[in-house]
Amino acid sequence: MTQISETKQKVKFYQTGTLTAGNRLLEEGHRSVQATVDRSNSLDCGHRACQGCGEALGARFAIDAAMRATNNQLIAANATGCLEVFTTPYPETAWSIPWIHSLFGNAPAVASGIAAAMKAKGRDDVRVIAQGGDGGTTDIGFGCLSGMFDRNDDVLYICYNNEAYMNTGVQRSSATPGAARTATTMPVGPEPGNDFATGKSVPLIAMAHQIPYVATASVHDLHDLEHKVSKAMSFHGARYIEISVPCPLGWGSKPGDTIKIARLAVQTGMFPLFEAENGDVTGVTKIRQHQPVGEYLKLQRRFAHVFKKENEDQLQALQAIADRNIKRFNLLPSGGEEE
C-alpha cells in the first residue's frame, strides 16, 4: 500500500472557514451527487484542465447534478473554449455523456436544434444542456443565446464565467471586471487594466427575456450549485445559470485558493448569488460574512495594481460596484444590517 509522506502532503481532515456543512452532517437526500455511488462521472478524470481550475469543478458538479435530475437522459452542446479543449483532444474524451462541440458562437443554437430533434422524435425524456465560457456566452455566442431565450427552447444554458478569454491566453471579454489585467487590458497608462463602465450582466439580460429560470452560482458552494441545476431541470423552456469559476492562470491566483476566491467574490458582493423566475428575482443568497473587496482582490495578481497609491480610485470604484450589487439584490441579512 502506498503511504503518503507527511512531509509532502499535509492531510486535512476538516475544512475550516468554509461555512458549508460537510456531507456527513446532511441527510442522505441532501447530500451532493458526488457523494453517491451512482454519480454519473459525466466529466471524468484524465482531462487536461489546469490545477485549481474552477471551470472543471463547476462543470463536473453541474452536469452530474443535471444527470441525476434527468435520470441520465442528457445531451450536451459545448462552445469552443477551455472546457471543450481540455476535455476532448480526439481520440480521448473526458465526457461520458452524449456531447457535441460545433463552434465558438453557436452552442445555444446547436442545443436548440437538438431539443427540436428530441421533440420531433417524441423523446420527451431526453433533456438538453448547452455550456460555454463567458466569451462564448456574453460575446460571440450572444446572438444565438438571445435567440434561444426568445424562442423559449427547452435548453439549460450554463455559462462558466471566469471573466476573460482564458483559452486564447487571457484576453478581455464583456464579462471582465473593471481594472482587471488581461492580455488586451494591461495595467499600463493612467487607467490601468480594463475600463470601468463597460461589460454586461447576462443573467439580468436573460431575465429581461422573461425565461422560466435564471440563476447564478459559485464553485465555493457546490450544494447550492447542484440545487440550482436540479431546480433548473424541473422547468421546461429556456433556462440560464451562470457559475463563477476562478481561473488561477488568468487571475494570477494560487491553484489552492480557487474556492477561497470564489467565496470571497460572493462575500464581498462582487458576484451576487440569486435566482429569478419569469423575469422576477425570487431569491438571493445572503452574505454571511461581509468582506471589503480588497480581501477578494489581493489574492489575484490581475488586480495587483489597484493597491498602488496612485490607483486608489480603482479600488474605490470596485468597492462601489460591490456595494451597488449588495444594495440592488439586498444581499446583507435583515435588510442591510450586517450580522
Binding site: 453557436n106 446547436v110 437538438i114
Partner: peptide
Amino acid sequence: SACIGSSAAGA
C-alpha cells in the same frame, strides 16, 4: 447551427 444540432441528434 440549429440544423447541425438536430442532424447530430438524428433528425
